[in-house]
Design a protein around this nucleic acid. Sequence first.
RNA 1: CUCCCGUUCGUCUAGCCUGGUCUAGGACACAUGGUUUUCAUCCAUGCAACAGGGGUUCGAAUCCCCUACGGGAGGCCA
Length: 454
Amino acid sequence: MSDVRVRFAPSPTGFFHIGSARTALFNWLYARHAGGTFVLRIEDTDRARNTDESLQVLLDGMRWLGLDWDEGPDAGGDYGPYFQSQRQSIYDTYLKRLHDAGRTYEKDGAIWFKLEGERYTAYDKFLEAEVEKVKTKPVVIDDLIRGRVERAEERDFVLVRKDGSPAFHFVNVVDDIAMRITHVIRGEDHLSNTSKHVELFKAFGVEPPKFAHIPLILKEAGSGKMSKRDKGALIEEYESRGFLAAAVRNYISLLGWNPKDEREKLDIGEIIELFDFPGINKGNSRFDEKKLAALNAEYLRELNIESFTFLARPLLNEAGVIGEGLDEDYLQAVLTLCQPKARSLDTLSELCGYFFRDAYAMDEKTGAKIAKKTDPEALLAEVLPILDTVEPFKADAIKSALELHAAAEDQPVFAYFPALRYAISGQGGGPDLLPMLEVMGRERVTARIRKFIA
RNA sequence: CUCCCGUUCGUCUAGCCUGGUCUAGGACACAUGGUUUUCAUCCAUGCAACAGGGGUUCGAAUCCCCUACGGGAGGCCA
C-alpha cells in the first residue's frame, strides 16, 4: 500500500448531492488508483444541523455508489475518531499550540486566528462595515490541477466559536494534519479558502498536503453551481428511480475527467486504472441528465434478465402495475421483450404496463393517426377469427396465418399491425408485435380486440 | 465591491504542456434515411465550436497581453 492518504469530509446535511458524490468519487478513485487509503471523515461541527438520519443518507449513498472507505464510521482506523464532534481533545491540543505560538486572541467570546502583517482599518464595501485588515504575504498554492495560485488572506478568522465549538477552517486543517492526509481533493469552491488553510499549516509548522481543486458541476438549467434544491441533484433520487449505480458512477466520473481516448462507457476497474490528475479538467461542467440516461440505458441492456427483473420489480410494484398473484413466468417473458427497449427503469411501467393491466390508456394521437389511414375496426374484425383459431399461438404460426390472410386480401401483412398493436396496448410503439402477441396469449389478445371493436 | 479560477459544437469533451499532421475528432441531444409493421433498440448520414481584440512567429485552438463573459470565495455554514 502506498502512503497516499485522501479523505472525503462531508458535513451531513440530510442530502447527498451529485457534487459531493463526485468529490467522494474522485477521492476514492485516486486512492484506489494509487493504492492508498481512503478516509471518510464526518465534519459535524455544526451542532444545529446534524442528525443520525442525515448521516445515514450519506453512508447509504456512498455504499450505493460502491465507494468503500478504509477508515471512518463503521470501519475504524488508526486515526480516529472519525467524527469531528468526538475529536474535541485533539482540537484543544492543537489550539494550545497556536496559543503558545502567540497566534490566537479572543474577541466577542470567540477565539480568532491572528494573521501576520501590518494592520489597518478600512471600510469594506461587501461587509458594509469598518473592519480590521492585515497586509499579509501572499501564500502560494501549488495546485495539482490549476498550477501555481497565489492569494493573500487579509482578515483574521474564527477558530473557536463563542459556544466553544471549533470552526471549519480550523478543524479541517487539524484533522488533515492529524490524519496524515497527503492529498486534498475537493471542489474549486474551496480554492479561495485554501489560503486560510495554508496559513494554518504554516502556523503549525507543517508542510501542507498537495491540493487538487476539481471543477464544479453547474446546474442543468440556469446559472450557478448545482445545489440540493436543483432538479436531479440528489443521488438518492437516482437510486429510487431505478438508475444503475454503475451508470451514475460512470457518468459523474466523466464530469470533469476523461480517459483521454474516445471511450465513455468504462467499467470501474478501467476508470481506477486510468484516473489521475492530468485527466482532470479546469473548467466547470454542466450536468446533463439526458446523457446520464443514455449511458444508463446502455448498462440496462447489458443486464441479464434475472438482474433486470430484480431491479424492475419494485418499481413496477410501486407503480401498481404488478401486485399479488403475479405469474412469475409471465413477468419474465414480458420483461424479456421490454428490456431492449427500456431507457430507464422508472418509465418501464409506462412502456409495458398494459401487459399486466386491462385498463390501459389509449394514446389518442396514435389512435387518430391510425384511423386516418385505415379502418382499424374492420381490419381487426378480419383478423380476429384467425387469432381465435391459429395453432399454436406462437409468433411464427401467427405470422404465417396473418400473411396467408393478407395475401388473400391483396394486402401487405403489416397493414394490420398498427391497428393490432393499438388495440391491445393503446400505444403506437413497443416491443416487436408478433412475440408480443405470443407472450400476451390468445385469451388476453382476443378479449382486447373484441372490446376494441365493440 | 475585492480577490481567485475558468472559457473548443446546445451539452460532456479530445487536441493546448512539447506551435505545422486540425478543411478541429468523439459522445449525448437534435434532424433525415435504413433495419421490407411500430419503436425509446440497432446502423448510416447530416447539423453544429476554437469568446473577442491585439501581439510573437514563415505558421497559433495551441505561447504572451488586454477585454468580455462564466464560476467561486469573501460567515462565530461547510
